[in-house]
Design a protein around this nucleic acid. Structure first.
Length: 584
RNA sequence: CGGAGCGUAGCGCAGCUUGGUAGCGCAUCUGCUUUGGGAGCAGAGGGUCGUAGGUUCAAAUCCUAUCGCUCCGACCA
């Protein structure tokens, strides 16, 4: 592209609504244009990046015998009713009606569609396993879109779906996709970490699922990693333990705690450490039309991990109890506790970090009263425990029990799931096995945020001057800056541009009639891997061109004849180095 | 949806408190000069001050409603 004629506009000033580096830089470097909240257009320069990412994804999937297809973006409501997700995805899904009043949705994901295609096409175990994928636009009516294309409402995603006869086959397929995914971000030169995750609305709880997180300071996700054994998990799913002292004796007695409601106040007033008190958190869990109140018990200074609670309960929705709920239940806020709690009113669950044989301070169930010396194993007949707490940095690793967890921030660019028979059962998909018996095949599903990957790449590769693209996904290979007004000289530059392109290099040539500083600033902002400079002043001295590495600042001077070869080998070398960054 | 804030030229902002000619920087266009880190001079174009009501002789400014945008929480690739 010659900039004098190309469609590319940069901005000197940071847009007011951008918060994180990738968003600012994508706008400033003219890669995207904001249409509305969470809706971005990809401008020509930005779209090239998306295409490069998509092509890498395509190549790696094709290599692993996955087959690309294109499903529709608008999908019929009846499919979603069939799987039961029409209501479950409420809020996230954009629903519309056509002129005949038929329900449709703008697909947020495509399990239903792919299952529908599969069941009409495959009938025998002989045709399994099979993996289908597509790269297309998804729409999710995000509650709060933010950070530019990082969390937008419309975005492109690669989604793959595999079908298997049995668990062993699913395990193999999942393993294969794990490697496909690892290869993808390794090729892009991005530093990533694979972590255990929570399945969310996608799968049954407890199914195997992992996220691929690109490591970034401004990542939305927190990830916990054990440096000793390598255990890594999203904080939503992470398990850890604390090292605490306990008080194992004490009589149960009711004490006055006037106006002391929070754990901090109560523990301070009674002069006990906060972890010698139990925090009672009330939630309402909703499944279908059924509602149940949950009393979650935690160590006083722990926090509830709602995601763990939700997947433990397996409910559709979970919400914090409101003042109206407390009124209805007739219990005083701030003084709730499990002792003598009216049966049937609550499902009481103790966090497993609580020592059942230790004495704790708990709410007294009446205003300004707390119990001291509550020992769960002695004072509660019906104990149910689960892992409910949010882990903290420096918790002891739950796997090796030796290391302490360290927090890393990341951007979730990929997620792989074992779905099991969730959709094949609800949508009545069957194949015949070896014995001619009808069975439900089982599924895996695998997603990659392609547009988000572009943003993540920038988060990980930028400096004060702009973006530093990894070679594999840079919109072009080379930024060719020409500094001259001399017509003869410009003609030679044009010839060089032709030679480079003929050799297969992707070149942006800055032949605009603006100052050299302006061109250099734009080149740094866009951040192509190499910059080639041809200036009348320097060239007239020694007939040399200058190549500069955007990342390292390294400069080489050379004659015209050597350009193509030098640039190609430099790019190859960079590509190889960037691949080494990969997994942490 | 809950809490906070912002809507004035393509972008970044001032003006609003105390009502009285709509401004600055960047960008854009023209001319001349200029070419190794966002050039200089001279000139030009571009705004129903988000929208709709109201108060007033007079509203960007005060009041009401509404729409949009951003930030903090729950959702997720």
């Amino acid at each position: 592209m010659k900039l004098s004629k190309g469609f590319w506009q940069t901005f000197k000033e940071t847009p007011a609504d951008a918060e994180i580096p990738s968003h600012k830089l994508m706008i400033r470097a003219g890669l995207i244009y904001k249409e509305a909240a969470g809706l971005y257009a990809y401008l020509p320069m930005g779209l090239r990046v998306i295409h490069k990412i998509e092509n890498i994804i395509r190549e790696e999937h094709n290599k692993a015998d996955c087959y690309e297809l294109a499903m529709t973006v608008l999908t019929p409501g009846e499919l979603w009713h069939e799987s039961g997700r029409w209501d479950k995805m409420e809020g996230q899904m954009l629903k519309i009606k056509d002129r005949a009043g038929r329900e449709l949705c703008v697909s947020p994901t495509n399990e239903e569609s792919v299952v529908d295609i599969f069941r009409k096409s495959i009938n025998s175990y002989k045709q399994l396993p099979v993996c289908l994928y597509q790269i297309n636009t998804k729409f999710r009516d995000e509650i709060r879109p933010r950070y530019g294309v990082m969390r937008s409402r419309e975005f492109t995603m690669k989604d793959a779906y595999s079908f298997h006869l049995d668990k062993k086959c699913l395990d193999d397929g999942y393993e294969k996709m794990f490697h496909v995914y690892s290869n993808i971000w390794t090729r892009m030169g991005l530093k990533f970490i694979v972590v255990d995750a929570d399945g969310g609305a996608m799968a049954f709880s407890g199914a195997k699922t992992q996220e691929f997180q690109v490591v970034a300071e401004f990542g939305e996700d927190k990830v916990m990693k054990c440096p000793e054994c390598g255990y890594a998990a999203n904080i939503e799913a992470a398990e850890g333990h604390r090292n605490l002292d306990f008080n194992t004796s004490g009589d149960l007695k009711l004490v006055d705690t006037p106006d002391k409601k929070t754990i901090e106040e109560v523990a301070g007033f009674l002069k006990v450490p906060e972890h010698h008190a139990l925090k009672s958190v009330v939630y309402s869990s909703i499944t279908g039309t059924e509602e149940e109140f949950i009393l979650a018990m935690l160590l006083g200074d722990d926090e509830l991990n709602e995601i763990k609670l939700k997947s433990y309960l397996g409910c559709d929705h979970l919400r914090v109890a409101t003042d109206a709920d407390f009124k209805r239940l007739d219990i005083p806020v701030g003084f709730i506790g499990p002792y003598n709690l009216q049966k049937g009113k609550f499902n009481v669950i103790y966090d497993r970090e609580i020592n059942m044989d230790a004495a704790y301070v708990i709410g007294g169930l009446s205003k300004d009263k707390h119990y001291m010396g509550f020992i769960p194993s002695r004072d509660d007949k019906n104990i149910q425990t689960a892992d409910l707490r949010l882990v903290y940095e420096d918790d002891r690793c739950a796997v090796c029990k030796k290391g302490t967890l360290k927090e890393i921030r990341g951007i979730e660019v990929g997620h792989i799931f074992q779905l099991g028979d969730k959709y094949t059962k609800s949508m009545n998909v069957t194949v015949l096995d070896k014995n001619g018996k009808t069975v439900n095949p089982i599924m895996g599903c695998y997603g990659i945020g392609t547009t988000r990957t572009a943003a993540a790449a920038i988060e990980q590769n930028n400096d004060k001057d702009g973006i530093i693209w990894p070679v594999a996904i840079a919109p072009y290979d080379l930024h060719f800056v020409v500094i001259s007004k001399n017509e003869e000289f410009m003609k030679m530059a044009g010839e060089v541009y032709g030679e480079l392109r003929k050799a297969g290099l992707e070149v942006v040539m800055d032949d605009r009639n603006v100052g050299p500083g302006f061109k250099f600033k734009d080149a740094d902002l866009l951040g192509l891997p190499l910059r080639l400079t041809l200036g009348e002043r320097d060239y007239s001295k020694d007939q040399n061109f200058e190549i500069r590495d955007r990342r390292t600042g390294e400069v080489k001077k050379m004659k015209r004849e050597k350009l193509v070869q030098e640039i190609k080998s430099w790019l190859e070398q960079k590509r190889a180095e960037e691949k080494k960054v990969s997994k942490v």
